[in-house]
Nucleic acid binder design. Sequence first.
RNA 1: GGGGGAGUGUCCCGAGUGGCAAAGGGGGCGGACUGUAAAUCCGCUGGCUACGCCUUCGUAGGUUCGAGUCCUACCUCCCCCA
Length: 420
Amino acid sequence: MTDAFKPRSDFLRVLIERGYVHQCSDYAGLDAKALSGSLVAYIGFDCTAPSLHVGSLLQIMMLRWLQQTGGKPLALMGGGTTMVGDPSGKDESRKLLSVEQIEANKTGIRKVFDRFITFGDGRHDAVMPDNAGWLATLNYITFLREVGRHFSVNRMLAMDSVKLRLGREHELSFLEFNYMCLQAYDFVELNRRCGCVLQMGGSDQWGNIVTGLDLGRRMGTEQLFALTSPLITTASGAKMGKTAAGAVWLDASMLAPYDYWQFWRNCEDADVGRFLKLFTVAPLGEIARLEALGGAEINEAKKVLANEATAMLHGRVAAEEAAATARQTFEEGALAESLPTVDVAAAEFEAGLGALTAFVRAGLVASTGEARRQIRGGGLKVNDVALADERAVIGRDALMASGVVKLSLGRKKHVLLRAV
RNA sequence: GGGGGAGUGUCCCGAGUGGCAAAGGGGGCGGACUGUAAAUCCGCUGGCUACGCCUUCGUAGGUUCGAGUCCUACCUCCCCCA
C-alpha cells in the first residue's frame, strides 16, 4: 500500500523508509501538510507507571523523527483518561491513581522524552500537554450537547474493536465505550489549542484515531490525519519488551543501562535490521550492510544496535561502559568490575554465607527453593565454577583480590557480591 | 426478577473419582547444541531453619479420620427467559 506512494516530505519519507508506517488515512494530504513545514502531531501516552518501557519506544521515535524533519511533536499525557482507567482489552480494571502519583509519573516520563526530543516554546519545540487540562472540568451535559451529538453509535458499533468485544464473552462497558469518544475529543481539542492535525499511534489505535478525524470533520476543524505504526513482535512472534525480569524500562534506576544494552544485544537474528531502522538513527545504507552479515558476523550488527539504542537513551558513555562490561564478561571471560553489584557485610563472609542465600541476595533467584532447583539443573556458578552442593558455603576464601565473588545464573546473568 | 453454568497451582489456559502439592498445555527459567541468535532435544517451573514442616483450588462456615472434590451462605462473572 505504501509502495505506490512516493512521499516528497522528509517526514513521511523517513517514516516509510524505516518501517514505522502501518496505515495512514491520507498519504498525499499528510505529505503536503508535512511539506508545508507546519506539521503538528501528537501521540497519547498512559501515565499509569513512573516511566515508559520499550513498548512505547517506537512511538517516541516517531515523535523524534517528526521533530528532526521540521515538525512539532506533542506528547500527550493521559492524566485525565488515567483517572477513569484504561480499559483497552484488559480484564482487570486498573487501580485508580492519586493525583500526586499521576504527577510523579508524568515527571518520570518527561525524563524519558527529554532524551529524545527537545521541549520548549519555540515553533518546533515539543510540548507535553495533559488531557486532564480539558477533560477534568468537562461538564457532562455540555459535552453531550457539543460533542456527543456528533458521535454515531451505528458507526462505532461497526468498528472492529467494538465488534470484537460484542462478539466475545467479555462485555463492553459504557465507560469503555466512551473512552474512544474522549480520545477523539482530545484530538479536536489539540487541534484547537495547538493546531495539531495528526495523531499517531500503534495499529490497535486506528479505530480510535479515525473516530477523532470524524469528530473533527463534524465539529469543523481543518482536515485531520491518522497514521499508525505496526505492532512490533519479535521474529518468532513474541510480543516485544517482555523479559524474565519484567518490562524493559526506559529509566536507568528501573533497568540498568547494562541490562538495557543486553536486551538489544540478545535480539533475534531476523530482527536486527528492522530494529536498527526503528530504534536507532543509523543511516539506512549502513543498516543494509549490517543486516546482510551472515552467521556469527550478525553479532556485529547486534552490538551496533545495542550501542546505538543505549547511547540514545542513557548516553554514549553509559553505552560504552555497557559494551565494555559485556566484552570483558562474554568475550574475554574476565571479571568486569562494572557488573551489577550487591554489597554484603564482610562479617557474613567470615561466618560463611550459605550459597543458596547468597544467590537469593544477589537477586538471581527468587527463593532458596529456586536456587536448589537451579543447582540441580547445573545453572548456578560461583566464580565461574558450577555449584554442585546445595549446602555449599561461600566463605572468605571465595573472595577474589578485588574483594568480590562472582555469582552467575546461566551464561548470561552475572552479579558480583562485594564484601564491605 | 426467574432459570442454567462457571470461578483450580497469584503469568495464562486447563483436567481433577473424598486421600492431592493436585494431570496436561502455553509461557518462563536452566542444561545440551551454537554465535550472548533461531530451531531442536532434555530438566525445572508453591514456601521454609528441608529425608521433615508450612501454605495453596472465588470468600466464610459445616459434614468427615481426611475436602479442590459433599452441604450452607455470600461474592464475582457468563448464558437463557422477563
